[in-house]
Design a protein around this nucleic acid. Structure first.
Ligand code: SF4
Ligand code: SF4
Lengths: 160, 160
DNA sequence: TTAATTTAGGATAAAAGAGTCTTTAATACT
DNA sequence: AGTATTAAAGACTCTTTTATCCTAAATTAA
């Protein structure tokens, strides 16, 4: 099991890319999808969730696309996760017993309750601007590597 | 998304119950499933994974069942998780980019790499005996509550 | 040896997640 | 007005997870 769903991971990558691209203009989802090496249709669905949550503003037609509804600095990573995967990860018990934490907590309760806070804090302290800056400063990557990219990467390395 | 798959959660619950029941005798999977309110067939499949990993010893026929291959005290929670869900949660990157952590780490890398260790340590320091003791000492529950259970619980509370 | 019990294993079904494709609606530009 | 562009929305497919069911193999006990 991964921590986040694939949809969520794609959404996060897209959001970081958007934060890099700037916040003034609408950015077309197709362009984002191409840069991230994802299906544009699929990404559209995912970003729709963010639009429905009010994190993005969308606009149809030529020059349309999506952009943040507020400065990237004020958008926490956890908001993206919440819109796509929900808050389950940060709120539910590790053993999936419902009615949790009340009268009859499960054996892991104490440890996990403590850890949930740490995890939540991690996602709450990261904002999109900061992540975007990280990416730019360090020349980090967001794109998944296709087989072709890997070959290209290896060739480039050998030429150096 | 939950942290652990349902199969994994069921496996953990079963393992804790087994640790409570004692380690001498074989315990039938059907009995465990009944106590945990799960499908016996499904639980059988899950526990097979633990048997294949060598965590359990199984025995067919009357008086058959499963038991731990070593003292519950020496079985870490992470071993159960690893056998069912694999080590992905503790080893892979949060953003699911493969080729991770090498030349071009993703923007979350540093924070997540640090957090992974904390998470892993949590699952490594919990052993089954300790969890079982917790359950017994505090009268905690392992069983999922059915609608009927909840009604019964409420009635009991009112009578007090 | 026969019958009962219990795990192993495969076939199948149902539900959820991931991904594709087509149509519709809004918008900008000519 | 007409055309191209773009997000929205829904139908549909494929895969994985979850779950059920049936049969086979092993083992105990009478
Ligand atoms: S008691 Fe606590 S740890 Fe256990 S399932 Fe409930 S919330 Fe999770
Ligand atoms: S760079 Fe680090 S955090 Fe990012 S995907 Fe790779 S391992 Fe995960």
């Amino acid at each position: 099991m991964a921590l986040l769903s694939k949809s969520c991971v794609y959404g996060i990558r897209a959001a970081i890319l958007m934060a890099i691209k700037g916040e003034k203009e609408f950015i077309s989802i197709k362009d984002i999808a191409e840069e991230l090496n994802l299906s544009a249709h699929f990404l559209t669905k995912i970003l729709q969730l963010l639009t429905q949550e009010g994190l993005l503003i969308s606009h149809r037609g030529p020059k349309g696309g999506v952009k943040f509804s507020r400065p990237a600095k004020n958008i926490k990573l956890i908001e993206i996760v919440a819109a796509i995967d929900g808050m389950e990860l940060f709120e539910e018990c590790a053993l999936g017993l419902h009615g949790c934490g009340t009268a009859t907590p499960c054996p892991l309760h104490e440890k996990w309750a403590e850890h949930k806070i740490v995890l939540r804090t991690l996602f709450e302290t990261e904002n999109l601007e900061k992540l975007a800056d990280n990416v730019q400063d360090a020349g980090l990557r967001l794109r998944t590597l296709s087989q072709l990219d890997i070959i290209e990467f290896n060739n480039t390395k050998m030429q150096k």
